[in-house]
Design a protein around this nucleic acid. Structure first.
Length: 270
DNA sequence: CGTATTCCCTGCACGC
DNA sequence: TGCGTGCAGGGAATAC
């Protein structure tokens, strides 16, 4: 499932194939993704040169002079640059044709993803109000401390709120809290500045590490499939309820926090 | 405004 | 073997 590191990996993998290339056509096989694909995509994109491939939060932007294609992979989406002759498979919803030899193909079984349009000089409503990038200078413990004052929601819910910081989903929230020794249940407003510094450092370290590992799958980006393998092996808390805590050996607890399954160590995380 | 809940969708792991 | 059930996930929409 694409988390921020996978989206960043996708961006880095696509950029050399797309930047400078002209979109020669658009094929819509299933326009009803999470939202309908707006008419601007087939109307304005053909003939445009892709100037840059950018990422904001978990969104990808393909910039052209006429506007930007805005893509989200949802939780099951994938983007691949393939030879034009590649047979269409189930859930291949959209193709951006890149001349006669290559195609950018969007596959998304669950259709939680989207393909939208952002006019030049505008910021799409979905991108307004987003918090800072977790790997930028704007994100640190002092920032989290300031934003959390007076909040009673669990710190895990707070950390997963994209208005606070983008790109931290259920997996990385659980991992970062375990690493920082903070209980996911603790009200966000009752975490000290010092501990928020540890949490911000943990978020940053885990995401940077995952991106570095995702980078290893860049090479076979054109291959039929390259599922990133860093996931299961290196996780300390996520999905490990009942298993021993990697730090103290006591069994990890598991419960719903903000409607999300959450595992944590009742001893190491306070 | 902050918080809690529901829903979207499909594939897969279950248990019977 | 085949069926039904429940869960997973990001995040918008809705309801307080």
């Amino acid at each position: 499932m694409p988390e921020l590191p996978e989206v960043e990996t996708t961006r880095a993998g696509l950029a050399p194939h797309l930047e400078g290339r002209r979109v020669s056509g658009v094929v819509l096989r299933r326009p009803d993704l999470r939202w309908p694909i707006p008419p601007e995509v087939p109307a304005l994109l053909p003939g445009q040169r892709i100037l840059a491939v950018r990422r904001r939060a978990k969104y990808l932007l393909l910039d052209t002079a006429a506007g930007s294609a805005l893509l989200h992979l949802g939780m099951s989406g994938s983007l691949r640059v393939l030879p034009s002759s590649t047979p269409v498979r189930e859930h291949d919803h959209v193709d951006l044709l890149l001349g006669s030899r290559r195609v950018l193909r969007f596959n998304d079984p669950r259709r939680f993803g989207c393909l939208l349009w952002q006019a030049p000089g505008e910021v799409h409503p979905l991108l307004r109000g987003l918090g800072p990038e977790p790997l930028s200078d704007a994100f640190d413990g002092d920032y989290l401390f300031a934003r959390s004052r007076g909040r009673r929601a669990p710190v895990k819910t707070f950390l997963m709120d994209q208005r606070i910081v983008v790109g931290v989903g259920n997996i990385y929230a659980a991992e970062a809290l375990h690493r920082a020794g903070i209980s996911p249940l603790r009200p966000a407003g009752r975490v000290s500045r010092e501990r928020y510094r540890a949490l911000a450092d943990a978020v940053r370290a885990i995401l940077a590490h995952a991106i570095a590992r995702g980078g290893t799958t860049l090479r076979d980006f054109l291959a039929p499939d390259g599922a990133p393998g860093y996931f299961e092996q290196e996780l300390s808390a996520y999905g490990r309820g009942g298993e021993p805590c990697p730090r103290c050996g006591r069994p990890l607890r598991q419960a719903l926090v903000g409607q999300r399954t959450t595992a944590w160590c009742g001893h190491c995380q306070r």
